[in-house]
Write a protein that binds this DNA or RNA. Structure first.
Lengths: 204, 204, 204, 204
DNA sequence: CATGAATGAGGATTCATTCAT
DNA sequence: GATGAATGAATCCTCATTCAT
């Protein structure tokens, strides 16, 4: 009964509609937060009536859940990319600048904060996050482990898990940092990130 | 007109009441979020009528603000403590375990997430955070700079700012991490933190 | 943004609804006053939920304003009628009885009193009244001036403005008078009015 | 049980207190209306605690009633004055300017409007007004009748009642007129009043 | 006498959700 | 499918009034 999408005669059209709603939701959520955005607002942004949305989503919470789910995949994709790289460890370090810069944009960091807070009180959301995180972590772990073995570095699983969790915390803390310090100078920050990434990934 | 607390003939009692409200708010907020918690709920938890709360706080937003302010001081105090240490750099590294463990408790990390999300859409809250963060950063910077100079390490201000922002992001990402991975093994995580802290604080 | 009515796909139905609300409001307002009448009361009288009223009016104040506006038009219409008359001066005098009788009905005089009091503290309402009054005065002035010129009577504008303001004050005082003296004998009162009207309109 | 003032050991002090409250009420009422003024506001203006006011008045409504009662006496006093005049009819006409000017001050006309509106829904207030009005009317009638008899003018009681009611309506309409037309030119208005008063009082 | 802390009912307003069309 | 009219519960907040001190 959970997460099951309603049956529609024309599944293609239904998916288009669902996407319309989720896109509208993104715009509203990022401006007003999950709970500040009203269904009326979302429906207007989606170009369909409020009532009609309920043909595609059971409730506002279901929209939030679908929205979070969708956002979750972004991280997964990053991992997929990383897995393709020749030298993933160096890639992580080299891309630090790009990733940090990306997080500078308010449009980028508002939604994560909203999602995290929602997860902190909505167990369904929390579970989604945890589930996705676990998959990403496993993938990340195996990428890093292989890369370190190739370099002749120690690759104890537990140790690596610890380091990777720290690494991810660092990135996840970035939006939080920007709220507290919107004027942060980016170059030195990136330098700091590089030091950390180098230490975590290339140290004994 | 700003931030001025209402005059009460018995300031002691008033403070007790205010604290009652803030304590109740903490309990409600952590369970339901700032906006999920109703004044009725808070008033019940505080053991006073909803109307009466308004003798101590101008609005629900004022409660949130006071609550955030209170939480904010915790960080300030950490800095004050640090300033007293003989070897602050080593202290930061040594205390990593303690700080990480502290953040493990859901009661500890739920509120920050809520605060961050609130700040992302409530400018008043954001300003409070930024203001407090700036003070803490300055203090932290001067502590670390002095300590590094004493050790004969480079202490360029901009470079240090970058590293410290990264360091703080790391800690602020911790609650986010726990939401995604509540089963994280703490010891390896702490080890990861130590690597980072050592690199940031003691590297050239 | 001002005074713009919300767009409704079926304007006819919307107008019916709006009228329902205004009629209900009239009944409640006249019994309890603008501020004594609650939205719940009005909604019950209007046969629709309180929430739904907000699809047609932005706020209770907007209902009051619309209501006042509606009442205001009554006076405008009287002027229009007057303008059509062959001998407007005599018409005013002849109709005195009718107008006074009309004002005798409590339903007629309760609302004006409420409106006047509201205007005395609500600038938006005051402005509506003043604006409408100005238009009516101008029309009234030109009607009376032309009629006096036709009769060969002096028609100095300032003098006429003074007399007409007095004339209107007389009528506007009528509801007030009825509250103080509900048993007033109408015939002699009308006779008094005729003396006044004759003096104001037909004197040198 | 009605209107009975509470017993106080020191009636003198009690009266002082009551007056304090009524004075404060006047200031609050004129700014915010009877229902817009809160007991807290009044108590602050009166320089005593809200609770204490209840030692002198049973309820807010009782304050309003007492306040209206007090205001009512102003008109009575005018009549007393008039009764002393050598030529009361001419006095009324001569004083028109003064009375009209007095009514120009917003402080003067806000309260009457508030009182009238209150009377239109509060029967207790209405009764007070009616009772006081009746006394004033009788006095006014006898003054005018005697004066007209002295001048050899007709003095039929019913006719005079009609004229006097019209006269009073004229004055009571003045505040209403000022709300609608705050820029009214006073001199011509007074001239209009004189025409009316002359016609009502000195005509056959 | 006097305070003001405390109550609790009632206010306007919002909004997720339903359902007749 | 699609609409938006309609609901009603819930929300924040105000305020007359009471009462312990």
């Amino acid at each position: 009964m959970n997460q099951v999408e309603k049956k529609h005669p024309d599944p293609e059209r239904a998916n288009t509609r669902r996407k319309q709603v989720l896109d509208a939701a993104e715009s509203c959520f990022s401006r007003r937060g999950f709970h500040g955005a009203s269904m009326a607002e979302i429906s207007k942004a989606a170009g369909m009536s409020a009532g009609h949305i309920y043909n595609y989503f059971d409730s506002k919470d279901a929209i939030i859940a679908a929205f979070v789910m969708q956002n979750t995949e972004r991280v997964s994709n990053l991992m997929q990319d990383l897995a393709q790289r020749e030298d993933p460890l160096q890639a992580v370090i080299d891309n630090a600048g790009e990733h940090v810069l990306e997080a500078l944009d308010p449009k980028t960091w508002m939604m994560p904060l909203e999602i995290f807070a929602e997860a902190s009180r909505n167990p369904a959301i929390a579970e989604m996050l945890q589930c996705s995180d676990q998959r990403s972590r496993q993938l990340f772990l195996s990428i890093v482990r292989d890369a370190r073995i190739k370099r002749g570095l120690p690759a104890d699983e537990e140790m690596l898990q610890g380091r990777l969790n720290a690494l991810v915390a660092l990135y996840q803390g970035l939006p939080v940092r920007f709220i507290h310090n919107p004027d942060v100078k980016v170059e030195p920050l990136i330098a700091g990130f590089r030091i950390i990434l180098t230490a975590l990934l290339l140290n004994e």
